[in-house]
């Protein structure tokens, strides 16, 4: 057997590879583009989850945009104040962070509270389930509990507990991926220090809402009458809290007959880190 063709083939392809490699190395040196070193340093401050909350294509895109002046140093929602300060140091500007936003699920339709209209045995996806006669839960505003939000969360900070999604304040970065995904639009980005939240979006009149879910807002206006600082008002059948006026006193939480107003502040230390 003649081995020469094999040697030729290896030698020729190897030789071509070496020649082109050297050529490319030379051209690469000649046409080198200086990358602003700040881009690398800004990139190092970022989480690297590429969540896209900043509106740029990934963390690399955001770092480039910050250095180009197209994005504010506070643009990284997921990183919060710490990241903004670090980027601010590199860019030589003072970071002024707005309120820290976290995702809050505005539904308390747990399996105990909300009744079921039919047995759903389809694909375990909220988006699919919502298409089938408005979902199996009696309340057509309720969390479907199949965890579409859990799947999109890159930070493992939202979970389905007893049929309702619950977001973790401490690990949530406010990227808003779950807000986008939820077919019911019951997840909202709310400032972290706004701890009194109405966990219901049911706009039906009291009797119907009550029949659908034990913990629905029935629009009784008890909270309105209780609130010492005029911060709660029933708008379009659902209680809404004005964050500017709310003092986190928790009076409405105690008085609410269906227990649909929640106090996230409860049990937290005064020195709790709101950032």
């Amino acid at each position: 057997m003649d081995f020469l063709p094999i040697v030729y083939a290896v030698a020729i392809l190897g030789g071509l590879g070496v020649i082109f490699g050297l050529l490319l190395g030379f051209v690469g040196k000649k046409f080198e583009v200086k990358v602003d070193e700040r881009v690398t340093r800004v990139r190092a401050c970022l989480g690297g989850a590429n969540c896209g909350a900043c509106g740029f294509p990934g963390c690399d895109g955001f770092a480039q945009a910050v250095v180009d002046g197209k994005a504010p140093v506070t643009g990284c929602t997921a990183g919060g104040k710490k990241t903004a300060d670090a980027i601010g140091d590199i860019m030589g500007v003072k970071a002024e962070v707005g309120e820290r936003l976290v995702a809050r699920v505005r539904c308390n339709g747990t399996l105990d509270n909300v009744s079921s209209r039919y047995d759903y045995a389809g694909v375990k996806s909220c988006r699919v389930a919502a298409q089938l006669a408005g979902g199996s839960k009696a309340c057509s505003f309720a969390c479907l509990g199949f965890g579409d939000c859990v799947h999109v969360c890159k930070f493992d900070s939202i979970h389905v507990v007893n049929g309702v999604a619950v977001a973790n304040d401490d690990t949530c970065t406010g990227c808003g991926a779950c807000v986008e995904q939820c077919p019911r639009s019951i997840i909202a980005l709310i400032p972290k220090n706004r701890t009194i939240v109405v966990k219901c979006r049911n706009i039906e009149v009291g009797k119907i809402a009550r029949a659908q879910c034990k913990s629905a807002c029935i629009g009784c206006k008890m909270c309105e009458r209780t609130c010492p600082s005029d911060a709660v008002h029933v708008v379009n059948g659902v209680a809404e809290i004005d964050p500017a006026k709310c003092t986190r006193c928790g009076a409405c939480v105690v008085k609410c007959p269906t227990k649909c107003i929640f106090n996230f502040f409860e049990g937290l230390q005064e020195s709790y880190d709101w950032e």
Partner: peptide
């Protein structure tokens, strides 16, 4: 690759 590096510059 050459064209890409040239254009980038």
């Amino acid at each position: 690759q050459c064209v890409e590096m040239f254009l980038k510059k």
